[in-house]
Amino acid sequence: MNAVTLNVDPYNLIITGVGGQGNVMTSRAVGNMLSQLGLHVTIGETFGASQRGGSVMSHLRISKTASWSPQIPLGGAHMIVSMEPTETLRVLKDYGHPGVRVITNTRPFYPVGVISGQLSYPKDEEIRAWITELSEKAWFLNATEQAVALGNPVLGNVIMAGALAGTGELPLERGIFEAIMTTRFSGEKLRMNMDAYDFGVAHVAG
């Protein structure tokens, strides 16, 4: 515990995406990894019918001293991990500030209004430029595409968790992730999860 350090306390992490993408899974995996180091972790989440196909957000508060509220104050995010590019912008609006860091999956998940042609969806280059402008540091990766290549789109969440570890912003340890995954998976599935995690780490580190 004493060896564990945080850049700020509490460290405020937002994991965002669209209902059904696996946000809850990612935030729980990250939260568990940090909790096992003895850190106090609070994860604020909402789920239910209103989240079907809607925007979803998990707020993680990570602290050496206490449990913090499950809602991060406005403008208070240190890191945003986003499974969907326009959701990054939505979160920056409320929780961003010039010092925020961002990891974004670049694969769009179109809202119904866009599908029906009533709303337009910004271009990839535009989104990248906005995110870069509104953050101190930004990483982009097509986690969904890579996850499909690895065998299952749901691995996109694991890639993003790996990417977060790769930034070195939080004390996320590969061994702990592997131990958690080993309680749930074995054989080929375990290997796929570890490959996805390693891909995320390497993408951000490289």
Binding site: G20, G54, T86, K93, H97, P111, G113, W130
Partner: peptide, 26 residues
């Protein structure tokens, strides 16, 4: 206080760049 210029810019970007996600059936 939040950085006012940042908040205004982030608001403007999200207004144009984050299309609303209406709740819908699967």
């Amino acid at each position: 206080q939040r950085d006012a210029a940042y908040a205004a810019r982030a608001g403007a970007v999200a207004f144009g760049g984050s299309p609303h996600r209406e709740a819908t059936f699967c």
